[in-house]
Each structure stands twice: as structure tokens, then as C-alpha cells.
Design a protein around this nucleic acid. Structure first.
Lengths: 282, 282
DNA sequence: ACGGGCGATACCCTCACGGTATCGCCGCAC
DNA sequence: GTGCGGCGATACCGTGAGGGTATCGCCCGT
């Protein structure tokens, strides 16, 4: 199976529409139709059900969508890591660390300091990512190592070491009735009619329906909260970045958040290993 | 990057010889040369150093060899799992379990029995493998779940659950002087001139040089041992398959062997999850 | 009944990929 | 030094896979 075929199939499986998928791929629709049916013939499997008005995935198609994405990621990772290895010999032997923008910045600073003092340490390019983006960077080889947050990020397929675990707090506008409470239950904050949870854009850039305000950055969320328009549930350490407009109240039954350092399981990089060791010594 | 290019590069990187690689790929040498240099141009990286008498990997080439193998495995896995998913809907919803031939058969029997009594259990195709073969089957999607042995098998990139841990014993021919001992040290058995360790064929089917006898199956090894031609170091549980011609003596400082059940981290299979749960209840 | 949306089919053209022949370089034998 | 042989690169050619355009067939909505 060629990666071109996989890319074609993934596009159709995601769009569930040959015309749009072809447009996205920058080719015409007929060759796409042909490529897919040829793939189906070679696999001996029906991947898509073409009902007269809609295209749907078969069971086999769903499997190929999942496995194909992983395979495409692996191919892309091979490409990126090779490019970076080639750059490394011509003078820039850096390592790329992906971390969520605006999260646990003092942990990151300590880690970078600890690593920098190691013998043989190397430049660390820090990539600040939007939520969940680190995972993708790591899977596609654009990053060598990442700081992830269980259970928010999907750790499957990575090697990880836990760095620390913390509870979550609700961020409320100053003056809100609940700010007088010493602690809260999750059920008390998820269904507040006056403070709906904010809506985040999905992978396709559109917002889901719902009552909450739309936001696409951490600072927007904070501002919306201090304006009394929404409420946040965040890990405890995020309190360090708050100002006086908002109040944090612990949520006793929210799932704990574990900060981990993660890297691809077959990494051979000395720098990654050193970074992980430095992180564990913190 | 297309999988064809990756396959070509991996072939050359493994053979370190364009002619042989081309032969292995079933194409002529010139198109192979061209494909590789084109790949190098597109990546902007020199992958191979063509000295006048030999071909060697550059740093970037070594990275691409590693990552490329993983990527090719992932593509192959996508293909196999899709094929099997398609077969599953047409009547045969089985799950493939890979295990080492001749190892811990009573564990396997208990596992299969426990799983078979579960509601919604499904046919289990057991693949008996040569040493280390399970890992490859799992990585390339020909198996859904495997029984592996740490530290012999490389578990990186799999999700695993430990089933049990045991020490290792030396298998000696009956009557050998060391059989009178209650326990041994590793150093006492690895360098015995009268009982050299056996040689095992590599991936290419050839045997490494050395004093020990050549063998390619478990039963051959046992026979060679009872004939007094070699000595084995095996996990404790392998004793159950011995006859009276040989004697097992514990090795106190050999690394413990952990039997684990392993599956690809992104597995969505109900059957795999049930099998793992059954294994953990043993 | 008809128009429009959508996937499949028919048909053509181009170029990427594979093959053969040959070159250029180098190491070795004598 | 000369010649030979091994090996990767280059030159050149043919074919077929893959892309494009035009159109069909089907079905749904009005």
C-alpha cells in the first residue's frame, strides 16, 4: 500500500464526500474514485458504503482510517526526524520540546535549567502549543519530547514518566456566590445556567453548538471568566497565572491531572534521555 | 514520502550495496540509484556515503532506517488489520494471539479457557512463533495480541500487562559435574569450554561464528543438551517440558524473566480487551 | 417530469518509473 | 603501468499508472 493511497482514503473517510475530499487533495474527483475502488479491490474489502445520498464507513473502513492515520503519522515522523538529523550534523544539534502554552511554566523553567547544566547538553527548542497539539507534534516527528497532561492528552504509544499530579480547581469571576465556598463538587459547576462552560473549536475549526461563549486561546478564556461570562476547570498549578478578577476554588471530585514527560518509544536520542533524567530529578 | 521509496531505502541501508538491494527488490540497479538520490534531494539530506569501495550510512540515514522500518511496519499493519476486519464481517470474527512455541503452555491453556467462558468471546487463533517472532507479528498487524517475555522481547511501543515473573535455570545433561550443585552463578555457565552456548540463526538465516552447535528449534536444543553437546539457560517454567536426560539448576544472578501480554496501544478490539482482562484474572 | 447533486465510467494524455547500455572511478593483480 | 573487474552514476528509451475532461446513471426533491 502506498502512502498516496492512504492519504486519499483518509481524506475521503474524513469528509465522507468524494468531491470535497478531491478538492482537499488538489485532484479531480474521478481519479479519486478510481484510486479508492482500486484500493478496495486490492484489499479485498469494501471500505465505504455508497448509499445513493451519502457515503459511510464500513467496519473495515473504520479500521483503515484509524490504522492509516497512525501509519501516515509514522511516515511523516520518519521524514521530519531524518531532516532534523541531517541538520544536526551541519551545526545545529538541537532537541525540540513541545509543551502546552501557559501551563506549568515554572516546572518547564526548572527542567530547562537542570538539563542545561548537564554535561553534553544541547539546545532545546521549546514549542508552545495549543491544547492537545503536542501529541500530534510528537507523533509526526516535529517534536522529540513533550510535556503532556493525563487524562487530557492521549498517551497511548508513547513512553512516559510522571512528573507530578495535582487536583483541579474551578476558576470563577470574583464576587460569584460560589467563591465563598471552600470546595466544590464537579456536579455543582458543570451545569450552571449563569456560567456555561466555554466552547472550543474542533479540529475543523468550527465550534460545537451550546450555550457557552466561543474561545480559542487561554487568555480569551481568562478574560471571559473575569467578565463573568464563563467558568473554567483547570489544574491547580494554573492558579499562579491568575489575577485578582477571578477566584479559584478546589473541586474535590474532579479527576487528578498528571503532568508527564513523553517521548516516542523507539527514540535513540541522547538528548531526550538526558532531558527525561533531568526531569525525574526535579 | 511514498512507501516504495522507504522500502527501497531500507533495502539499500540493510544491504549497504545497491546491486544486492536491487536484486532483493526485484528491480534493476540504475532505477534504484536514481530513486535513492532523488529521495536524498527531496529530504535535503545525504543518507548514504558512497566511498569508492563501500556504502555506509550517514547519521541521517541511520535515523531514516530506524524510523522508516517503524513506518513500514505501521503501513503493513494497517493493511493486515483492514483485511482481517473485512473478513470478520463475513463470518469469522476471530482474534489472533501470537505466543512463543514451547513456552508456558499451561499459562496459555488457562488463559484460553478463562477467555472462552466470557460472554461474547470469540475464536482465538493461536500462532506459535519462533523466538522473537511475536513482536514482529504484532507490529505488522498479523497478530492482535501476543505473549512476550521481558527482557528478551522488545516491548517498546506496546501496551502491556505483566502476568508473572520467574527466575532462570541452567539445563545441563544428566551426570554433568555441575548438576550436583543446588544453584549456580551466571558466570559459571557462560564460559564452559566443555559446554559452549548454542548458536542461533540470525534474521538472514546464517549462523554466527562460535564454538557452540547450530540449532534452529527448541526440540533440537533439548536434544543437543541431553547429548551433552550444549547447555541452555531458560526460564524456570520451561522445566515442565524436560525429560530425565537433563537436569535443571537455578541460576541465582540471571535476570528475571517477566511474561507479559502485549497489544498495540491503539487497539480498539473488544476481544483483545477481554483477553487481557481474562489474563489479569488468572 | 425535471433539475441538480454525486459517484462511476469512458477516454485521453503525460510523465514517473523501470529497463538496457554505457560511463567513470577506483582497487587490485601481475 | 596496464588491464581487468566491481560498482555506482548517467544517458536514453518505452510503458503504464495516475491525473484530467466529458459524460453517464442514479436518486432525491420540488
Amino acid at each position: 500500500m502506498e502512502t498516496r493511497e492512504l492519504r486519499y482514503f483518509v481524506a475521503v473517510a474524513e469528509e465522507l464526500h468524494f468531491g470535497r475530499a478531491a478538492q482537499r487533495l488538489g485532484i479531480a474527483q474521478p481519479p479519486l474514485s478510481r484510486a479508492i475502488s482500486q484500493l478496495e479491490r486490492r484489499l479485498g474489502a469494501t471500505l465505504l458504503r455508497r448509499d445513493s445520498r451519502s457515503v459511510t464507513l464500513t467496519e473495515a473502513g473504520a479500521v483503515l482510517l484509524h490504522e492509516g492515520r497512525a501509519a501516515l503519522d509514522a511516515v511523516e515522523a520518519a521524514e521530519h526526524r531524518t531532516r532534523r538529523a541531517a541538520l544536526a550534523v551541519t551545526g545545529h544539534p538541537g532537541v525540540v520540546l513541545a509543551t502546552k502554552a501557559g501551563a506549568s511554566s515554572e516546572l518547564l523553567a526548572k527542567l530547562l535549567n537542570a538539563y542545561a547544566t548537564e554535561p553534553g547538553s544541547v539546545d532545546v527548542d521549546v514549542m508552545l502549543c495549543g491544547p492537545g497539539e503536542q501529541e500530534r507534534l510528537l507523533r509526526t516527528g516535529r517534536a522529540d519530547v513533550a510535556i503532556l497532561h493525563h487524562p487530557f492528552d492521549n498517551l497511548s504509544g508513547f513512553d512516559t514518566e510522571e512528573l507530578f499530579t495535582e487536583g483541579q480547581v474551578a476558576i470563577l469571576p470574583a464576587g460569584h456566590p460560589l467563591t465563598t465556598r471552600g470546595s466544590l463538587q464537579l456536579s455543582e459547576v458543570t451545569e450552571l445556567p449563569d456560567l456555561p462552560l466555554p466552547r472550543w473549536p474542533g479540529d475543523d475549526g468550527t465550534y460545537p453548538d451550546g450555550p457557552g461563549p466561543e474561545a480559542r486561546s487561554h487568555s480569551q478564556l481568562l478574560q471571559l471568566t473575569s467578565l463573568g461570562r464563563t467558568l473554567l476547570v483547570v489544574p491547580d498549578s494554573a492558579r499562579s497565572q491568575l489575577n485578582d478578577d477571578v477566584v479559584a476554588v478546589p473541586i474535590v471530585d474532579a479527576p487528578d491531572v498528571t503532568t508527564v514527560i513523553a517521548w516516542p518509544p523507539h527514540s535513540r536520542s541522547r538528548a531526550v534521555a538526558d532531558l527525561v533524567r533531568a526531569a525525574l530529578r526535579l
